[in-house]
């Protein structure tokens, strides 16, 4: 293929919507074209960014409003059916369960919600980590809800410009296409390059923060394994289906340093250690 497929063609490719011939030619192209492989990775990134947008929980006043409207409608209907049946709008009768006792199991039932709650939890991590760049939805009301409470501490407007400083791990973009066979030497090279940069006093340069979404994976990985992540390289990995975008994490412990290749899917939640594609000691 001589010309690059456009983003839409890559998005269709990712969804498996292309004709076999076209699909093959794009697959071949991606094998040899790093920019297009990157674009493909970024299309997944769009999904991730969308999934990370925080949404406020149902505000109590809206819940009350809904109860009220339904009670009114119920009363109107009863009045139409026959004036003898009484129902007072807004006043729950003894048989109505109160809003506060809706069982958790009922709230969690059915499709979608569990996932949504997971996404919401991830969003809290994102904000907590300081990348509150997409916190536009936040409202004051929401800080009243338990799930969103941590947000109010970290995501206030005035904190935003300082978010880069709150990162524990440093970000880096070596542009390396890591492979399983050469991971150790590539990682050593990256580590030296990144440290060299720090020695030269440019540590606080602009891209010294981990890629968007990486911080919560780092946080969870640190919590799960007890390691300390010092550097995140936003890079590529030679996977079974060609180059994919990965976060290469450098960790430090008493005995030395390790490198871990992390699938960005970890940002979606779940067991973070399951997203580790490879691991080597340095």
């Amino acid at each position: 293929m001589t010309s690059h497929p456009d983003a839409e063609a890559l998005a269709f490719f990712a969804e498996g919507l292309l004709e076999p011939g076209e699909e093959r030619s794009i697959a071949d192209h991606i094998d040899t074209c790093v920019p297009c492989a990157v674009t493909l990775g970024e299309l997944n990134g769009v999904t991730r960014v969308l999934a990370e947008v925080p949404a406020p929980a149902l505000p109590q006043d809206v819940a009350d409003l809904l109860d009220g409207r339904i009670a009114e409608a119920s009363a109107e209907r009863s009045a139409d059916d026959g004036p003898m049946r009484k129902s007072r709008p807004g006043v729950p009768s003894e048989s109505a369960p109160s809003a506060s006792v809706t069982p958790i199991s009922a709230k969690r039932r059915g499709f979608g919600l569990t996932r949504f709650m997971m996404v919401a939890a991830v969003a809290v991590f994102v904000i907590g980590g300081g990348t509150a760049v997409i916190g536009g939805l936040m409202t004051d009301r929401q800080s009243e809800t338990g799930a969103a409470a941590p947000l109010s501490e970290e995501s206030s407007e005035e904190n935003l410009p300082d978010t880069a400083q709150s990162y524990a791990a440093e970000g880096f973009e070596s542009g390396t296409l890591y492979t399983e066979d050469t991971l150790t030497e590539q990682a050593t090279k990256t580590l030296n390059a990144a440290e060299g940069e720090g020695d030269m006093g440019v540590q606080s340069q602009e891209d010294a923060e981990p890629p968007h979404g990486a911080q919560e994976c780092v946080t969870r990985l640190e919590a799960a394994t007890g390691v300390r992540v010092t550097l995140v390289d936003d890079a590529l990995w030679e996977g079974p289906e060609g180059p994919e975008r990965v976060w290469v994490l450098f960790t430090r412990h008493d005995a030395g340093a390790d490198v871990m290749v992390l699938d960005p899917i970890c940002a979606r939640g779940g067991d973070v250690t399951a997203s580790v594609l490879a691991k080597e000691s340095l």
Partner: peptide, 23 residues
């Protein structure tokens, strides 16, 4: 797919994309 492709340019910066130098 169409939506993601359209959003890519305006959301890519949130993912801090940079072209790899060894392209």
């Amino acid at each position: 797919a169409r939506g993601r492709a359209k959003l890519l340019p305006s959301l890519a910066h949130l993912r801090n994309p940079q072209p790899p130098p060894d392209v």
